[in-house]
Computed example of a mutant assay.
Amino acid sequence: MRRLLLTCSTLGLLCSPSLYAQDLKVVSTMKPITMIVQELTQGVTSTETLLPAGASPHDYALRPSDARKLNDADLVIWVGPELERFLTKILEDKENVLTLTEQDSIHFRHYGEAHDEHAGHDHDDHGHDDHAGHDHDDHDHHGHSHDGIDPHLWLGPEQAVQAAQVITDKLVALDPAHKDKFEANLVNFIDEVKTAMVAIEQTLTPVVDRGYFVFHDGYGYFEEQFGLNNLGHFTVEPDRRPGAKTLISIRNSLKDQHAHCVFSEPQFSPAVVDSVVRGTGVNIGTLDPMGTDIAYGDGSYVEFLQTLGNSFSQCLKSE
């Protein structure tokens, strides 16, 4: 079907949009983005995820099968070079690529600006050097720099809604025959997210004043949305064990700040987390920014947000 459609396009003939829609292939880079896209394409077409479950966009190595998937796609949706740097070259000349960080209608956070004030600290306030012992060169080869746009937009409900609007506009442009369906899906998605935001706010209100630390500065959108009290962050790669200097710095910071919780991510070794908090009286929690254990399907993005809210609440309310 694709070959026929390309031939029609080449000859300047009109091809049925409904025929094209049957062959519409949408690829998004990461599971949380796919969960949003699936809500918008429901009843029209399906979408694929480039990265395997549990893979980090910060250090992923593109495989030949991934390149074929991207080349065959009618629409590729990625966050942008601020996050998936490994895709920059292969996508630079490709048509029908939607780069979310280039969209003016999405309200992005920027590292080094207001979010530091919200977090209640300067980088040097906790007795550690530049995020617990890592230098700026170390940040760069983690896969994104902690300057400029914060690319973790899917962790912000408002940003997810704004991204959904942009994605819907692109889907309509590619497949105008299903405009009404795409737009109806968008309305449903927005309603579900707004309802979830009210419930999450009720869950988190009792713990908004309780401080905590995260290893990775990736939760700012969610934290700002719900007014959470992030005391500090440490940019440690999920697949890298922190060195002794880093562990000592984190422990000192925890004692100084009287935090209620330290949040790890699924990729972190529990032994490392235990060694950081041992003797501090601080709780251990887990935040999964990739929604690893959430099944794809109707309402999966809202479930992702609710799970994140519950993770914060459960750890912070524990004494």
Rank of each mutant, 00 (worst) to 15 (best):
G143P: 12
D125G: 06
G127Y: 08
H139V: 02
K170Y: 04
D135G: 02
S145L: 14
S145R: 14
L171S: 06
P157F: 05
V172N: 06
D135Q: 01
Q165V: 04
F182W: 12
V161A: 04
D130M: 08
E183H: 06
V166D: 07
D135L: 04
V172C: 05
H142P: 01
G133T: 00
H121A: 15
D137L: 02
H144Q: 03
A160Y: 10
D125P: 02
L155D: 08
D180M: 10
P176S: 10
L171W: 12
D124M: 06
Q159V: 01
D130N: 14
G120Q: 12
L155R: 04
A177N: 14
H136K: 08
Q165T: 03
H144D: 11
Q162H: 07
D124G: 02
G156R: 11
S145M: 08
S145D: 14
L153A: 09
D122Q: 14
H131L: 09
P157S: 09
Q165I: 01
P176E: 08
L171K: 06
D130E: 12
P157M: 03
N185W: 12
H146M: 08
L153H: 05
K170A: 14
H178G: 01
P157N: 07
W154S: 02
I149T: 07
G143R: 05
P157H: 11
K179F: 07
H136R: 09
L155Q: 11
Q159E: 13
